[in-house]
C-alpha cells in the first residue's frame, strides 16, 4: 500500500552514506601520512558503510536480505577496527614516523 515510504526513508541514509564514503576515500588519497590516512578511512569504513547498509535494509523490508545485510554490517564493524589496529601497530613497530610539521611531506622511513 505505501510502497513509497521505505524508499523515501532510505534516501537520506543512502545519500549520507555515499557522501561519507566519498569523503573518506578522498581523505585516503589526500592525507599526508599513514596514520592520518587510517583516520580518514575509518570514516568511510564505519560510518559510510553503516549508513549505506542501513539504507539498503530499510529498502529491503523485513526479510532474509535484511538479516544478511545485518550480518555484513556486524562483520564490517567487527573486522574493520581490528584490521586498523593491527595496521597501526605494525606501522608503529616498523618505525614509520607520523608527519608532525606542516612543511614536511611524506613519511621519513622507506620500506
Amino acid at each position: 500500500m505505501n510502497d513509497w515510504f521505505p524508499e523515501i526513508l532510505s534516501w537520506p541514509f543512502l545519500a549520507a552514506g555515499s557522501f561519507f564514503y566519498l569523503v573518506g576515500s578522498i581523505g585516503l588519497m589526500r592525507m599526508p601520512d599513514v596514520y592520518t590516512r587510517m583516520h580518514a578511512t575509518s570514516v568511510s569504513d564505519t560510518f559510510g558503510a553503516a549508513l549505506l547498509l542501513i539504507g539498503m535494509m530499510i529498502t529491503a523490508g523485513f526479510s532474509l536480505v535484511t538479516a544478511k545485510l545485518l550480518i555484513i554490517l556486524l562483520i564490517l564493524l567487527y573486522t574493520g577496527p581490528v584490521a586498523t589496529h593491527a595496521l597501526a601497530r605494525a606501522a608503529r613497530y616498523a618505525k614509520v614516523e607520523p608527519v608532525l610539521h606542516k612543511g614536511e611531506e611524506g613519511s621519513s622511513s622507506k620500506l
Binding site: 567487527y78 573486522t79 581490528v82 589496529h85 593491527a86 601497530r89
Partner: peptide, 13 residues
C-alpha cells in the same frame, strides 16, 4: 602482545 587480535580471532573463528 596481540591481545586484541587474539580475542578477535577467538570470536571470529
Amino acid at each position: 602482545l596481540d591481545l586484541i587480535l587474539r580475542v578477535a580471532t577467538k570470536l571470529l573463528v
